[in-house]
Structures are given as structure tokens and as C-alpha cells.
């Protein structure tokens, strides 16, 4: 069917498309004008990030220091509670320790005696024991 719309027919006669390299030239111009502006913006962003970096590093260091202090404090608490437990155990074994101390002292004391002396000492002891029983 024949096109009878005046405006559509005129469009077919008057349409004038751009050249093949129009897009390439346009986007080159676009990039030249607007990407330089966004590059400036990104430089500012980088500068802002650089300014923020020491703050971030300091925050991390502070967190690490705080954490290690907390851990060492916790460790120290744990250590002192273990010490307390050991002391209380030792206190409960006081009698054994006294005997042990006495034996140690005997071991260190040199007793000059002959075999006969030892025998008479031992026999007397045995006689005492028998006498008791």
C-alpha cells in the first residue's frame, strides 16, 4: 500500500545520516571532555584515600595492641590462679613435706659411726620396740 502520510514521506526524502566515523569522533570528543573531569575526580578520591590510610593503619595498630594487652592480662590471671591452686595443694600436704625436709636434713648430716655402733644402735632400737610391745 502506498505511503500517504506527508510527514513520513518527507522523512524518507530528508533523512541525512551521519558518516561512518561519526561515532568514533564523538566518543573521542566525549572522552576528552568528560573523562579528564572524572580523572581529576579519581585523583581527589585517591588523595582522600591516602589521607585516610594512616588513620586506618593507626586504628589497626591500636586494635592489635589492645587485643594483645587483653590476652596477656587474661593469661596473667590464668597463671596466678594456677599458682594459687599449687600453693593450696602444697599447704594440704604440709605433714609430708615436713618429713621430707627432715629426711633431707639427715641425708645432709654426716654421722661418723662404725658398723658395730650402728648394730648396737639398731639392736637397742629393736629392744625398745620389743619392750614397748
Amino acid at each position: 500500500m502506498k505511503e500517504r502520510d506527508f510527514f513520513k514521506l518527507m522523512n524518507t526524502k530528508l533523512a541525512h545520516p551521519p558518516s561512518d566515523d561519526f561515532d568514533r569522533r564523538f566518543w573521542a570528543n566525549f572522552k576528552k571532555e568528560f573523562n579528564s573531569a572524572s580523572e581529576m575526580l579519581s585523583i581527589f578520591e585517591q588523595l582522600a584515600r591516602m589521607a585516610l590510610k594512616p588513620v586506618a593503619v593507626a586504628a589497626v595498630l591500636l586494635a592489635v595492641a589492645g587485643g594483645s594487652f587483653w590476652l596477656s592480662q587474661k593469661d596473667r590471671d590464668r597463671q596466678s590462679s594456677a599458682d594459687l591452686q599449687l600453693v593450696s595443694t602444697l599447704m594440704s600436704q604440709q605433714g609430708f613435706l615436713d618429713d621430707f625436709e627432715m629426711l633431707e636434713e639427715l641425708g645432709e648430716t654426716g654421722v661418723m659411726a662404725s658398723d658395730e655402733d650402728w648394730e648396737s644402735v639398731m639392736n637397742n632400737r629393736a629392744g625398745e620396740s620389743r619392750g614397748h610391745s
Binding site: 502506498k2 505511503e3 500517504r4 502520510d5 514521506l9 526524502k13
Partner: peptide
């Protein structure tokens, strides 16, 4: 309004 046949032909046949 739609063009008459002769008007449509006039535009169609005309050089750009």
C-alpha cells in the same frame, strides 16, 4: 490528512 495519490507520487518521485 492523507495525501492524494498524485501528491504522494509527487513526493516519492522527487529527487532528494
Amino acid at each position: 490528512s492523507e495525501l492524494s495519490d498524485s501528491e504522494a507520487a509527487l513526493i516519492e518521485n522527487a529527487r532528494k
